[in-house]
Simulated assay, not measured.
Amino acid sequence: MEPSPVAAPALALPGKTALTEAVTDVFYGSVAGVVGKYIEYPFDTVKVRLQSQPDHLPLRYKGPLDCFRQSIQSDGVLSLYRGISAPLVGAAAETSSLFLFESLGREALFSAGLCPRDRPLSVPELWLTGAFAGAFTSFVLTPIELVKCKIQVPSPAEGRPPAPMRPLPVVRDIFRHEGLRGFWHGQLGTLIRETGGGAAWFGAKETVTSVFYGLKTRTAATRAERETIMSQPLPLWQQALAGASAGVSYNFLFFPADTIKSRMQTIPIGGLAVKRTFWNEGAALWRQHGLRGMYRGCGITCLRAAPSSAFIFMVYDGLKRNFPLR
């Protein structure tokens, strides 16, 4: 396959060291992640509440709109932002880790001699570096998402509505009941989701971007004119569409793994003598609700992922292009 014309350059850019590039990925990725989290968080809260409805009781929510309505009526609009402090840290960690590990994945391909440094990576190679980024990022994300899910879906006290929870008490409870290992409860689900989702996130964005550049360069009469077109950023609407396609691809393709993970992570702390495994939880969900249960909350998730990912890539690419760190 012809190399992708939109593939980003290698980790070590002219005038930059690998360390400088890594700092850039972490800093600008953190900024982009925080922006995206503020946009998507209410939708994420609804998604987790839909996913974590118990099997043995009638469904509390008829769908995303009903969940929004009930949540606002019972606790107000701010309840949809409950626990956002930890996810803001998580969003910064997630996005910066994805961009950092994706750059490290590129460097690994170059160092292993699998890809020459003098040409851009092809689109399939970018899917591979995306999977690399997702796999390593999953180990950063699982503890953060565990705390987030327990705050978003607090366990009701006997005869009383659930009390709001804060990150530090949740962290203490997890450590007291399950030790350090307990923070990675649901890791397999996160690993599956992030490895496949990371490949889809970077891969879909670069694929759509490559298509747009391919359409633009059809009119180029000379090689110099083509290179001039390739050196210019796409129009904002095309950047947004490429980023939005990344968010939808990431969430839709591996949503069942995320559903199982959310169910595992919303089990009350110390509530089960034996922790259910990823496969046991998935089998139980399939028996109760089939494929539809696996994708419960997927629509609202894709709806929030499209603008969120669009903003993340636009902010990240814009910062790197206009404010390069030296």
Rank of each mutant, 00 (worst) to 15 (best):
P9V: 05
A18T: 11
E21R: 13
V23I: 14
S30L: 03
V34L: 10
E40Q: 12
Y41P: 03
D44W: 09
V46L: 03
V48E: 02
R49Y: 01
L50T: 01
L50R: 00
S52R: 03
H56M: 02
P58K: 01
L65S: 10
S71Y: 00
S74Q: 12
V77C: 10
S85C: 08
S85V: 13
A86H: 12
A91E: 04
A92C: 07
A93M: 02
T95C: 04
S96V: 01
F101A: 01
F101V: 00
G105E: 07
G105M: 02
R106E: 12
E107Y: 08
L109K: 05
S111V: 05
G113L: 03
G113N: 10
C115M: 12
R117M: 06
L121E: 06
W127K: 07
T129V: 15
S138C: 08
L141G: 00
C149K: 12
I151R: 04
Q152N: 13
V153E: 06
P154L: 06
P154T: 10
A157N: 14
M165E: 14
P169Q: 07
V170E: 05
V170D: 00
I174T: 05
I174N: 01
R176Y: 08
E178W: 02
G179N: 02
Q187E: 15
G189M: 05
T190M: 14
G197H: 07
F202W: 11
T207D: 11
S210G: 13
G214Q: 13
L215H: 15
A220H: 11
A220D: 11
A221C: 11
R223E: 15
A224H: 13
M230W: 11
S231D: 13
P233N: 07
L234S: 13
P235D: 14
W237R: 15
L241K: 10
A244I: 10
S249T: 02
Y250S: 01
L253C: 00
P256C: 02
D258A: 10
I260R: 02
M264Y: 05
I269M: 10
G270K: 10
K275L: 15
K275V: 09
T277K: 09
F278L: 09
A284C: 00
A284R: 09
W286R: 05
W286G: 02
L291V: 14
R292Q: 10
G293C: 06
Y295M: 08
C298K: 06
G299L: 13
G299R: 03
A306D: 08
S308L: 06
I312H: 06
F313V: 05
M314K: 01
V315L: 00
Y316V: 01
N322E: 10
P324L: 08
